[in-house]
Design a protein around this nucleic acid. Structure first.
Lengths: 267, 267
DNA sequence: CGTCTTTTTGAATACTGTCAATTTAAGTGG
DNA sequence: CCACTTAAATTGACAGTATTCAAAAAGACG
């Protein structure tokens, strides 16, 4: 309770409460109205919304819906858009030589997706919806133009990218130095915090990804993930019911994660 | 020989031949003269040199020398500069909770260092010279200003950051899915290619880092690294003499690395 | 030439992966 | 609504790879 949460797998964006909200969603690809968006305060965290205001309601941001299992984009496809998650959850993954998929990130509402495509003009990863999801597509070309006369937005965008670098750095530490238990504990705490930041319960939540997804992300097999869940349950750290998690001993879970975790505060 | 080199741990910058060249180095922190720099063609790959030309020879880029073992900057220190390696080699590392260091990258001439500091205004990693090294310090504040009226430079900078994200993504795949042999083979091939790109021999080179550094980078213990070197030698893939490596069977080494490596071409 | 660091090698352990079978949930169609 | 099919998750037994602990050898440095 007293301990500072680790937040190793730092979230890309410093979001504040913002619930998925389908009420104002229009069907298909519709003209967006950023000024009414429930995420406007945190869109490209506040940089875009607070600055390039005039452009906010032009038709540069098209909304797109992706059903469960569908891909937003595929590895190797030409890169044209960055995406901001409006509602739902997604995963990004790379394909290995054997055709295996390697999950590199899970995305929640408000998070920015696609930065890895800028380097070479094509997506370095694929992104798949874990549930019915809605994103906002932002033309990178246009965004780049916007930054010309908009220093704050430029800075925000750079910070977003740097944040992504830092997030991956911390994941490197996890993959290189942590045991299965430490990895899963870290993962759960990260999920918990990101959900809490969005106004959901930090101790009682539903995971949208499979055990295989989690394993792939953490560099473990799905069996090890399952076993570790069972072990945590036996230790009374949490209750597991399929993908529903209830954390019952946050303190100990945090200590397990912290055991080797990165020593510095949070993102 | 025929196979395409994997280049998993892609290098951050698409450099071309450029040898360390101390001949024109001035002592200590000196006024830089970019127009005479041997790296000018590839500085922030060509973006800076080709565009913000007028500024090139103002005193915004200060050269700094770091001796073996000295740090360029430390984790947590305020972020002010990006650094471009002029000559020498460095490593970047994070500190874990146990006080252990976790190497996240090795840097060679022409590469850009410090991007992880942008996000939070303080360095997320430490960077240490592996030998006597010379870097060019670029004020990020100034660089940001430069990008205002310089779209190509802006794009280049974004691409550099994205490239760093991609580099780390590939490292994630390595750490999550590869065996010790695959990791070391991949590492050696990456070194080889980066050296070749700088005009050095691709098959006969000197590594500046310790076994512990390599292990830390690859998520292995130094003993495992040493054993794997011995195994490779026994298989006649290469000759090891301390830190001097001579690759004698590039083909097989490539096949070992490719076994699970990322399927896509190169960076 | 002696000290300290780095590297190598060995033996035993431990953790996670692999293979396999079972259980549970979810989705489909009669 | 229920039988059927498929996907996801759990659990066990065993194997394998990398780690840990330990000691010796080889360089590097003053």
């Amino acid at each position: 309770m007293a301990a500072t949460p680790p937040e190793i797998l730092a979230e890309p964006m410093p979001l504040l409460p913002a619930r998925p909200d389908a009420s104002q969603a229009t069907a298909g690809v519709a003209k967006p109205h950023c000024s009414h968006c429930h995420l406007r305060e945190w869109c490209l965290p506040s940089g875009m919304a607070n600055n390039g205001l005039d452009c906010m309601d032009s038709v540069v941001f098209s909304r797109r819906r992706i059903k469960t299992g569908q891909r937003l984009y595929r590895e190797g496809e030409p890169f044209k858009y960055l995406y901001e998650v409006r509602s739902g959850n997604l995963k990004s993954s790379l394909t290995t030589a054997e055709g295996m998929e390697r999950v590199s990130a899970f995305h929640m509402a408000g998070e920015l997706i696609g930065l890895d495509g800028i380097a070479e003009g094509q997506h370095a990863s694929s992104t798949t919806a874990l549930e019915d999801t809605e994103v906002c597509a932002v033309s990178f070309e246009f965004l780049t133009e916007l930054t010309t006369g908009n220093a704050p937005l430029r800075r925000t965008l750079m910070q977003q990218m740097s944040q992504e670098i830092v997030r991956e750095l911390r994941l490197l530490v996890l993959l290189g130095n942590m045991t299965a238990e430490e990895r899963l504990a870290t993962f759960l705490l990260n999920l918990s915090q990101r959900l809490a930041a969005r106004g959901y319960s930090a101790s009682d939540f539903h995971m949208r990804m499979t055990r295989a997804d989690i394993g792939s992300y953490l560099g473990l097999t799905l069996e090890t993930v399952s076993r570790t869940f069972s072990a945590f349950q036996k230790l009374r750290l949490l209750k597991v019911e399929q993908r529903h998690i209830r954390i019952t001993n946050l303190d100990r879970l945090t200590r397990i994660a912290d055991m080797r975790a990165h020593k510095h505060p949070l993102i």
